[in-house]
């Protein structure tokens, strides 16, 4: 059976190909997958997980992580911050049938036309030592008393707003790390969006599971929040209108200096008239079926 039996052009990508591309991305652009305070640029060995960067990244002195502000210590009279990091250490995709990784029991087997994602991430937060807390406490107390004095004499409101001070980041010896594994099952579907009659290709979340994050209420709370973020925040942004998938060949050829009196486009093969699923998630691949449409 030919690949193009039900379409004019067929394209597919195997899960191994995507997973290799992700691995290359993680090694060559580690700052897309690692976030943390500037402290870790100088001390990457203190991160929760060692960053496996490609040699050329190290040679070019590219940053290994995207620098973020420290976590503030709430209520402190002087701005104090803690070092932290968030690392995505593993990201894999598995197209039906599931065979790249095992889904947790809560998600069951990977159903037909579904894809699964596995992500492992670590969050690390500094726990300041008692010794340092003792060291800085007098400074905090003095500032606290000074501020209280200003409030007593009613001068606080009349003072011009002081420029925001850079927080003092407490020195880190070792991070407290929490690593979790997250699994998600998704599928593609076509549908309209209110106020826009054309068809849109949407990615829908079927299930989500965080493995072994205890206690149970905390795990449920985290899963619920991530599910809401994915369903309402991230996945709607990934919806693609069908007109964005139509490639205007006539226009491309006109730019190349060849004027054609017909309109030639590449369009997704219609579902279900042309193919049962488009894109199809099967045989460990993501398959796309495309038709060449010529209109006079």
């Amino acid at each position: 059976m030919a690949l193009t039996d039900r379409c004019d052009i067929f394209g597919s990508v195997h899960e191994k190909g995507i997973n290799r591309i992700v691995r290359h991305l993680m090694r060559q652009r580690p700052s897309l997958f690692n976030y943390g305070t500037a402290f870790f640029l100088r001390n990457p060995n203190l991160l929760c997980e060692r960053i496996q960067a490609a040699p050329e990244v190290l040679q070019a002195h590219d940053p290994l992580l995207s620098v973020q502000d420290p976590v503030p210590i709430l209520g402190a009279a002087i701005p104090l911050g803690l070092n932290w990091c968030l690392q995505f250490t593993d990201l894999q995709i598995d197209f039906h049938p599931g065979n790249v990784f095992h889904l947790p029991n809560e998600l069951g087997n990977l159903p037909a036309q579904r894809l699964a994602l596995r992500m492992r991430g670590c969050f690390g937060l500094d726990c300041p030592s008692e010794e340092f807390i003792r060291e800085i406490l007098p400074q905090v107390e003095a500032e606290e008393v000074a501020q209280r004095g200003k409030e007593v004499f009613g001068t606080k409101e009349r003072q011009p707003a002081a420029p925001e001070r850079e927080p003092i980041v407490l020195p880190t010896r070792k991070l407290q790390c929490l690593c979790v594994e997250l699994f998600a099952v998704l599928h593609f579907e076509w549908g309209t969006i209110p106020g826009n009659p054309q068809q849109w290709l949407k990615l829908r979340l079927d299930g989500l599971e965080i493995v072994d994050l205890g206690p149970a209420p905390l795990e449920e709370m985290a899963e619920c929040y991530i599910r809401a973020v994915l369903k309402l925040g991230i996945l709607p942004r990934l919806s693609v209108p069908i007109e964005a998938m139509v490639l205007n060949i006539t226009e491309l050829m006109r730019k190349q200096g060849l004027a054609i009196g017909e309109t030639i486009t590449l369009q997704p093969t219609p579902v279900p008239a042309g193919v049962p699923n488009n894109p199809a998630v099967e045989d460990d691949r993501l398959k796309a079926f495309i038709n060449l449409v010529v209109e006079v």
Binding site: T4, D8, S12, H14, G17, R20, V294
Partner: peptide, 17 residues
């Protein structure tokens, strides 16, 4: 099995021709 596959049908070649 190849990681990326692209196939173009004979009919598409003929129409393009």
């Amino acid at each position: 099995m190849a990681h990326f596959t692209l196939a173009v049908s004979e009919g598409t070649f003929r129409r393009s021709f």
